[in-house]
Design a protein around this nucleic acid. Sequence first.
DNA 1: GACATATTGATAACGATTATCATTATCACA
DNA 2: TGTGATAATGATAATCGTTATCAATATGTC
Lengths: 164, 164
Amino acid sequence: MIIVINMSKKPLTARKNCDCRATRRGARREAVLDVLTSGPGHLSAEEIYRAARKRVPKIGIATVYRALRCLCSCGKAAEFIPADGVARYEPAGSRAHHDHLICTSCGSFLEAVDPEIERLQGRLAARHGFRISSHKLEIYGLCAGCAGTGAARGALRRRARIVE
Amino acid sequence: MIIVINMSKKPLTARKNCDCRATRRGARREAVLDVLTSGPGHLSAEEIYRAARKRVPKIGIATVYRALRCLCSCGKAAEFIPADGVARYEPAGSRAHHDHLICTSCGSFLEAVDPEIERLQGRLAARHGFRISSHKLEIYGLCAGCAGTGAARGALRRRARIVE
DNA sequence: GACATATTGATAACGATTATCATTATCACA
DNA sequence: TGTGATAATGATAATCGTTATCAATATGTC
Ligand SMILES: [Mn+2]
Ligand SMILES: [Mn+2]
Ligand SMILES: [Zn+2]
Ligand SMILES: [Zn+2]
């Protein structure tokens, strides 16, 4: 795949009209995309940098940030910023939208979607004449494992990545 | 009111068992609380600093941050971090929970709550054995004014701060 | 007033991210 | 296959919001 950096200074939110154009190909940005799609997801730039160096040892962190900007810009990756203020990245485009349940104990990210919540957000916005372009729902608390209840362990056993 | 700094390094989320104890009183932290409760809300630390200096000209930004930490720690203020990563503060305690509709055009914050969405979040979490401690719902898009439709202006006219 | 100590503000430090810029890698084409 | 244009890279400086440090000051108690 050919990946080209979008050098604009705009935020990293995915855009429809990405100005990425195929020009030259290199191993570094491929490595970043690789880490993103094959890794556990929800990685920080620093974590992606460390993983990418195992494939391309001479890669610099600046290139990782540039690649992430490009990937977000053309919708192949998504950036989100949890409460600690450190941006995290996950593959996008081929994946459905989802929200995050973030464990404040072990730091794990659980992905989930409730179509009813999604729908009601539209209704809430409409009530205020607000035109939604995106939304961010993050639920903080204890994951099943850290809560440690029987019901919790049951839910953990299911181990669903995206569950309605 | 007496306000005492909580010097802990924990995050600024409001806690039930705040270790704030009344010991000494000063004008600076009062000024910060004043700005917080009398201002337009959703101010950044820098904005609060500028406003506080009109009341206490010699106040330093460090004191503003310290006061905000204290106020959040004992539940008199709430901190939240939108997509731009810059923390913003609003009075809390006497105010009900609400979510934010954030206009990406004019930067305004509209407050809203949908009890049904709140309820469904609990259901979603329960489905994963997740024990919620807090959540953050931010909806990004165009406010009524910036969207510029007729219906939008109607909604704007209502000018509700918190609407179900 | 004298003391203990809580609070303050100037400023250094910090961490994540971005900008700079000289060097290197890639492509189009002769 | 060589060559020139230029896209991409990485080391590093800069930036920005926030926190830590620390000497000076303010406050409460006796
Ligand atoms: Mn995710
Ligand atoms: Mn608010
Ligand atoms: Zn956990
Ligand atoms: Zn607006």
